[in-house]
């Protein structure tokens, strides 16, 4: 069973719907014991970084998430949930979960070519894959994913980067994988069959 961390921040129903459509049980929970024991955890999230960390802390879910990661649970952070896996964010003052050695910074408003870039970045991008990774390997055709974000992650360890997009001439990290920990900046639950393929790969880990 897939546990979706339900801490009042994020589009729980879309994830449940898509996993259900794929034939997997995905159950929202804010139960610390269930999260600490889970095999598959999805950490969703939209909105502000500090607000999300405060909501996790208010439900005493920070330690259980660390326990689950230490046990080798498969974990997928989605959108803000990906950023929470890192150490910190320019958007807030609170520390993140620190499970991935990365910081989150604001998207630049000007590209390398000097052209204006919209922030937030909203829309579909083709994903570039710098290396093999468990969630993105199986797609043979190009994959497009839907993005809504104003911040992006920068990994200290280049090998953690599993997917990038090109924006304003820069490669922006939008997918990370380290052992059993994964994060995606885009919304697989809103990316039709491209997202289905990723979520199915996660569920089968």
């Amino acid at each position: 069973m897939i546990r979706i961390v339900d801490y009042g921040v994020g589009n729980i129903a879309s994830l449940v719907n898509m996993f259900g459509h794929l034939g997997f049980d995905a159950v929202p929970t804010d139960d610390a014991a269930a999260i600490a024991r889970a095999d598959h955890l999805v950490l969703p999230g939209v909105g502000a970084f500090d607000h999300a960390m405060r909501q996790l802390a208010a439900r005493d879910l920070v330690a259980p998430l660390h326990d689950a990661a230490a046990r080798g649970a498969h974990m997928l952070g989605v959108c803000l949930g990906m950023q929470l896996l890192g150490r910190s964010s320019e958007e807030g003052k609170l520390p993140g979960l620190g499970l991935i050695d990365a910081v989150t910074v604001r998207l630049p408003a000007i590209g390398r070519d000097g052209k204006k870039l919209s922030v937030p970045n909203i829309g579909w991008h083709m994903l570039e894959k710098p290396r093999m990774s468990p969630l993105l390997d199986n797609a043979t055709r190009p994959e497009r994913f839907y993005f809504v974000h104003s911040y992006h992650m920068i990994c200290a360890e280049p090998n953690d980067v599993a997917g990038t997009i090109l924006r304003g001439g820069d490669q922006v990290t939008v997918a990370v994988s380290r052992d059993t920990l994964h994060g995606v900046q885009f919304h697989p639950e809103k990316s039709h069959r491209h997202g289905m393929s990723l979520l199915e790969a996660f569920a089968r880990l």
Partner: peptide
């Protein structure tokens, strides 16, 4: 909807939005 969904009409209070977000 397995695609992004925007909804509008009759939004006048931030409290209306928690159930909207939860519902996708």
């Amino acid at each position: 909807c397995f695609m992004p969904l925007a909804y509008g009409g009759g939004l006048r209070d931030v409290r209306q939005c928690a159930p909207l977000v939860r519902n996708g």
